[in-house]
């Protein structure tokens, strides 16, 4: 996501295994979708990492120093792409239940209503 136009995801690690069956999807993702994804997101540093004997995952590092890991075992390349895009589209904030869907610094323009206000 982009906060005031600045992309928050800085680094994406694509970890896979060249042998395991659960990495089949991510291997074809790296052939077909990853180059395009890299091109579309020049602000993003994409690193591939080979770890044998583990399920594949995506790991994102955000500007606010948080990181997010998504397991992508046994997924289709399309699903992997969806998760990668979702990492890119998010801000890296903690996932908490929203208290309000409207965040403002200036709650009232015409003055807060109280029982004393006479019209």
């Amino acid at each position: 996501m982009a906060l005031r136009g600045a992309w928050q995801l800085q680094k994406l690690i694509v970890s896979f295994s060249d042998w395991g069956g659960s990495s089949r999807g991510i291997r074809s993702f790296m052939e077909s979708y990853l180059p395009v994804f890299k091109e579309k997101n020049p602000q993003l540093e994409v690193v591939t990492e080979l770890i044998r004997g583990q399920h594949p995952h995506l790991k994102g590092f955000y500007k606010n120093k948080s990181e997010r890991v998504v397991c992508v075992k046994n997924m289709d390349p399309e699903e992997v792409l969806q998760y990668a895009t979702r990492l890119r589209n998010s801000l890296g904030r903690k996932v908490v239940k929203l208290k309000t869907r409207h965040v403002t610094k200036h709650p009232s323009v015409q003055g807060t209503w109280t029982t004393d206000v006479k019209f």
């Binding site: 996501m1 982009a2 906060l3 005031r4 136009g5 979702r86 589209n89 998010s90 801000l91 996932v95 908490v96 239940k97 929203l98 323009v109 015409q110």
Partner: peptide, 30 residues
């Protein structure tokens, strides 16, 4: 609305527009 005047649509104001920028597509808490 501003501090001195209020314009009420009936029901909409055709000439008004609000500009916004998309910042995030994210998932809410589970």
């Amino acid at each position: 609305g501003s501090s001195s005047q209020t314009i009420i649509g009936r029901p909409l104001l055709p000439d008004a527009a609000v500009h916004a920028v998309v910042e995030e597509h994210a998932l809410d808490a589970k």
